[in-house]
Design a protein around this nucleic acid. Structure first.
Lengths: 246, 246
DNA sequence: GGTGCACGTTGACCCAGATCAAACGGCCTG
DNA sequence: CAGGCCGTTTGATCTGGGTCAACGTGCACC
């Protein structure tokens, strides 16, 4: 590529502006007054674009900032020395990445864009500074972290007690619900991740994920074409979850 | 019982005093100056004693405070409507309980004492207030929450990718390391939980846990008598973890 | 507009861990 | 000190999902 990788652009357009962002209600600015959001605007650094497959950060990178997803879709994963890895989460617009790094000042997982994406950089020392000034920001940030803990407990439950089809049903319902919150259709969506990535997240092999999709389709619960999913029987999927194994 | 359950005692002895506590370096006061710890003393409410089996809080209880374990041992668990449950963690002295409740203002899991225990009540609004004043407290609290997230990722890894014996080895090494940090022997300790609770945490049935213990003993890795564990070959246990399945 | 390759599906077989069952041991209580 | 009970161990058998293998399929890139 002959051009330098920093392309001269209108800088004001690169600067994140929470006050103008349609994700305000899902993201950090939630619950802030206009005045307070303006202060957050000052804090949030440049936006950053990532191509599909690019790392936002890697395990071992020094922790400096949190990242709010403006556009796109990410996964986080952990890689053990012996080669085993596990997807620990999928993140979509309005969600915050990077909180794994606060405790050790080093990131403990990898964050990878699953489609072309755009994130807002939130330098962490400044975030702490501002949340000492703005009570609502402080409290909301604590809520975001707490919810991440609760989400993780849900995944532990899923991995520890659920059967393959229950896991996949839970996964689909969770995606559906999150897409809905972002104004997309609850019934119809496009999976950004491969069967293998779904399997890794759910503690299953890709073949098992594929078979479960086929079974759901046979049973008329969903229709699947490649990565395109349509939920035909929401209640049926939910029923799968609340049923005792056996 | 004829006596009321609030027994008149010297009130100053009931009041928590971080400044006097030998867990300072493991708990919230970590990294604070003497002055700052004194402020924390004012914030931390009464201590509370719990008998073995008693709930510290239940899923659904309104969230009001965090709890620092002064003495004792706890488990947290989640119960689904269909009766399935999962232990999400075991907590020991110096660790903080209750962070699951911040996000929704309601606790999302149960916290139960596995032995007679004593905790310090940290009213959350006051903690947020003080951490707006004391930078080090704010930052340390964020670290504590972040580490909980990272711990949960570790459990997800364990549940998603490890075989039964690897899970148990990881569990024993983790306990050993945490006991060590508290000044107890790394080789020898008493399990506060049943085989069933270990199994629930590790996504295994109690019979599988029992068999894995027996196998470890046959192989000379540990000795087990009831809940008394002695680690004989730490390196051997570690090797179990880094080996590829099959 | 082919063609290569990554991703996905499906089938056959296998095994780790679940399930079912029985017996044991330490402890608490009467 | 007997009896009962909870937690644990151990054995026998079963099975959900893993593993291995072959074959489709759609998209990206010449």
């Amino acid at each position: 590529m002959p051009a330098p990788n920093v392309i001269p652009l209108n800088l004001t357009s690169l600067k994140a502006a929470c006050s103008q962002c349609n994700l305000r209600e899902l993201c950090l600015p939630y619950g802030l007054t206009e005045d307070e959001v303006a202060q957050l605007d000052n804090l949030v650094g440049a936006r950053r674009k990532l191509k599909r497959g690019q790392h936002l950060y890697r395990a071992g990178d020094p922790f400096e900032a949190l990242y709010a997803i403006k556009i796109g879709f990410f996964k986080t994963d952990i890689l053990l020395e012996d080669g085993r890895d596990q997807v620990t989460g999928f993140q979509m617009a309005g969600e915050i990445l990077g909180m794994d790094g606060i405790g050790t000042e080093v990131h403990t997982c990898n964050s990878i864009a699953l489609e072309d994406s755009e994130i807002c950089v939130i330098p962490f020392p400044q975030l702490e500074h501002l949340s000492r000034e703005i009570r609502a920001l402080q409290h909301h940030f604590h809520k975001v972290m707490s919810r991440e803990i609760v989400r993780d407990h849900g995944v532990m439950m899923l991995l520890g007690t659920m059967r393959a089809e229950e896991r996949l049903a839970a996964f689909l319902l969770n995606l559906s619900q999150r897409f809905t919150a972002r104004g997309y259709s609850p019934q119809e969506f496009h999976l950004r991740m491969t069967r293998e990535e779904i399997g890794s997240y759910l503690g299953l092999k890709l073949e098992t994920v594929s078979r479960a999709f086929s079974r759901f389709q046979e049973e008329g619960l969903i229709s699947v074409h490649q990565k395109h999913i349509r939920i035909l029987d929401n209640a049926g999927l939910k029923k799968l979850l609340s049923h005792q194994p056996g």
